[in-house]
Structure formats: C-alpha cells, structure tokens
Design a protein around this nucleic acid. Sequence first.
DNA 1: CGGCTATTTGAGGTACCTCAACGCCCGTGG
DNA 2: CCACGGGCGTTGAGGTACCTCAAATAGCCG
Lengths: 255, 255
Amino acid sequence: MPPRPEMPPRPEQSHKAQLDMFVRKLTAHSPLPLSDQEALLALPYQYRQLAPNTTILREGDRPQVCPILLSGFAYRYKLAADGGRQIVGLRIPGDPLDFQSLYLRTVDHNLQTLTQADVALVPLAELEQLADTRRSIARAILVDILVEASIGREWQLNIGRRHALPRLAHFLCELAYRVQFSEPQADAQLDVPLTQEQLADILGLTPVHVNRTLKTLEQEGAVTRSGRRLWASDINALARLCDFSPLYLHRDNAA
Amino acid sequence: MPPRPEMPPRPEQSHKAQLDMFVRKLTAHSPLPLSDQEALLALPYQYRQLAPNTTILREGDRPQVCPILLSGFAYRYKLAADGGRQIVGLRIPGDPLDFQSLYLRTVDHNLQTLTQADVALVPLAELEQLADTRRSIARAILVDILVEASIGREWQLNIGRRHALPRLAHFLCELAYRVQFSEPQADAQLDVPLTQEQLADILGLTPVHVNRTLKTLEQEGAVTRSGRRLWASDINALARLCDFSPLYLHRDNAA
DNA sequence: CGGCTATTTGAGGTACCTCAACGCCCGTGG
DNA sequence: CCACGGGCGTTGAGGTACCTCAAATAGCCG
C-alpha cells in the first residue's frame, strides 16, 4: 500500500523519537531500568528509508545487523513448493525485525517491507554485547520473541480452525489492538495497510475470497472501504464476529 | 494409542539417562560447557509419570515449575469459540515443555500429554537463577524457544498453503526428522503416536479426511498401517510428496 | 464376551477455489 | 490537463477439495 499521501518524507533528525518508540514498546512488555533504555538508544546504527516491497532478509541469510522498524510495516513469509505464499508474521512500527539472528545462524523465512518504511540497522555484535551484559535487556529481547511466537500460535488456530469471516475479523482485530497498544493516541479507526492479496496470504485464502468476505464485513458494519482503502472501523463488531480475546498478546506481562 | 506394550514401566532409578537426553538435545542446538551441563543435571526436580491425555498446563495458568519431557509425547493446543481445536505444537522425548513461563506471566495455550509420559518438574526459580548466572544456559533456552517458533511458522505454511496430501506428508516427515535427530539409533521406521483425530487437529483437517488421505499415502507406499498403528515407513517418499526441506529445524546451528 | 473408542466407508453438501472478464484507481508521460 | 497503462479490486460461473452426517466395522480392554 505504497507511499501514503499523508506520509511526507520526514526530516532526517527525527530518528530519536522513532527509536524512543522502539524502546518504549520493549519496556511495555518487560520493564527496563533507565540506564538500559539509554544504552539501547546509544547503540550505533545505520538509518535507511525503504520503499514498499523491499526485501530485508532472505531464507538462508546470515545477517550481521539487526533491523529495527522505526516506521511503516513489514512482514515475514514462506513459500511452498507450488509457489503458494504464506505470510507468517506482521511487524508494526517500533518492532524489532530480527532478534532471532542473535542466536540462530541462518534465517528460516523471508522478510519484506509492506509499506514505505524507516529502518535502523544495529550491528548484531553490539546488540549481543548489550544483551550479554545487561540482564533486563536480554529479558526484554526474549519477551519480544515469546510474544511473537504466541501470535504465531494464534495464527495457526486462525488458519486451521476458523472460517473465512471470523478468520478475517480476528486478524483485523489483532492488528487494531496491536497498533492501539503501541500508539494509544492514534485513531480508533485503523487504516489497514494491506492489499487483499496480502490479506489472503496471511489468512490462507485466495484474494477473490478475501474480497467477498470483506464485502460482507462491510455489510455487517465492521469495516469501511473507500477506493482501495480499508478501515477496521468497528473493532467491537469485529471482536464479536470472532470472539476475540487478547490474552495471547500478553499485555499483562509488564504489570 | 497411548500405553505402548513395548513400553513397560521403567525402573525409578533411570531418570539420569532420561535427563541426559534433555541436556544432550539442548547442547546439540547450542553448545554447553560441561560445568553447565552438570549444573542442569544437578537441578532439583520432582518426577512424575503421567497417563495419556493428562493436562499439564492450562491457558491462564501461572506455573511455578518447568516440566521437562523425559519420555513420551505431549502437545500444545488452542480452542476456537465454536469448539474447534488446533494443535499448535508437538513435543517429543527430551524436550522442555515450558521455558516460556520463565519470562511470561501467563500461559497462552493448553499443554497435554499425548502418550504415557515421564516428566521432571523443575522449580522455575531454580532454573531462572541458573539462566541468570550462566550465559550459555540462557542462550540454550533461547535457541530452544526460537527453534520451536520456527517450527510454528512452518506449520502456518503447512496449514495455510498445502493440500491435504502434502500437508500430512510434511508433518510426518518433520516428526521423523525430529525423532531421528534426538535418537539417532532408533528405527528409520517411525511409529507415529497420534490418532487420526489428533492428526486432524494438527493439520486443520477433519478426522475423516485424514483417514482418506492416509489411505492414499499408504497406496503410495509412503506409510504403513496395521490395526490402529501408523508408521512413517518411507521418509524419502514422504519428502518427495511435499518437497521437504529441513532448514527450518535449524540443525546447522551448533556446527 | 461386552463395551468403548478409533477407524473406515458412503452419500450428499458447502466453503472456498479457479478462471476469466471487467472496471476502477492512480501514477506516468505526453 | 488529458491519455495511457498497470495494478488492484470486483463480479460471475463453474469446479473441487474438503466437510458433515451417519452407520458399519475393527481393534482393544476388562
């Protein structure tokens, strides 16, 4: 969903605020003392602006840097032998993109930007050293990994055991919750940055069927569409359609 | 399925060998110095023999112990609102069952024994202290968590984008590989410890369709059946049917 | 042998897929 | 500013992989 009109190129100076969000999100799941927060902010990094659909990691890679998603969206995917694509994870602004490579040698999936995105590339060695010397940073990394794995399990349930309508509703609900958590000031109306084809690859459906399911979601009043845009406009309606329960997002963990 | 005739009750003394296997599996993915291996073996624990279909963890629990699967199989599952069950993970002998609770407050899925099983219950606090003081133990825990998450992503692909036949073949292949890795001396013919209903809940299918798919797998010569037993008898045939690639199991990690 | 559970088989239904055409949005270049 | 082109969304018609329901069989334990 390519370059958004309301997203003009940002001033190069504002990385600080974006990095702040990353640290804030980590802390929200696993509290970090101020000194550790500062250590994270003091990490060296390279700043990159990436176009939509830019590949960041490929299956088999052995990365030397850990990308952090400062703005925009990204997704993980895998391919089946017949060319079928399954999106196995979605990352939102402020999310780290590859803590895994701190501990595993080779990457087991592909990672791509969904929208235009800003990324900070932190040398893995630097991050590793920080994790090795500061207990609560290591813990925060682990918690992020565990929460993402929990979301993956919920997606398994979603794909394996829910019909198209609740399946789609569940995903939109999750996305709305996650964005809401990380940007509490944002609209309640979530602007969904995915094409119907991408939604299909998340849900294990075809684009055609996603289209038809979106239409009925719109008739139910759960979703609004205009042009190519999609909004999750009534989260309660969505939640009702799929019996959404946010336990698996582990928001309670910090408390 | 459960109580296997060839699995007589073991002498109570043999925990050592079983715990050894747990430590060996950890080390295989992330090398541990001997002192750390010994520290793990020296952990206090309670020994339990569990019947098939015994619940070990429930969604919402806040466990005080970390169960280690010394023998037998166990699985994680989640329920949809309409009662549909999705199995989201399978654990085999020697696997830790809940490292997650070292770092997350509440459990987000259910965990049950599949077969008769022996578990060691290690106090979380003791394990946590070990992980906090010994870097390579913390790392080994993380690697185990990451590999399980990687398997979860492959299951997403499997459920979302493969037809019943390659889907079933892929799962059987994975299971054969995993068991082979952890017990290199075992038969090449894997005795699959799952009912067709359980297979269905892993694969996002119905038991009836699993039955029919197994029949064609048998006709293909990939699988052998007798009575209620199922063997993955020709792993190469299975691998051919699904283009299996074991990269995602991260066997290369220790090397 | 009886009773339970897992497996097997059949017949009919449906949720979702495939293929294909069309139209709209939007960026591009004249 | 308009014409063009490509990508994405939309719609229809027909097909199929898998599901549902139901009943029968087979294995297993007491």
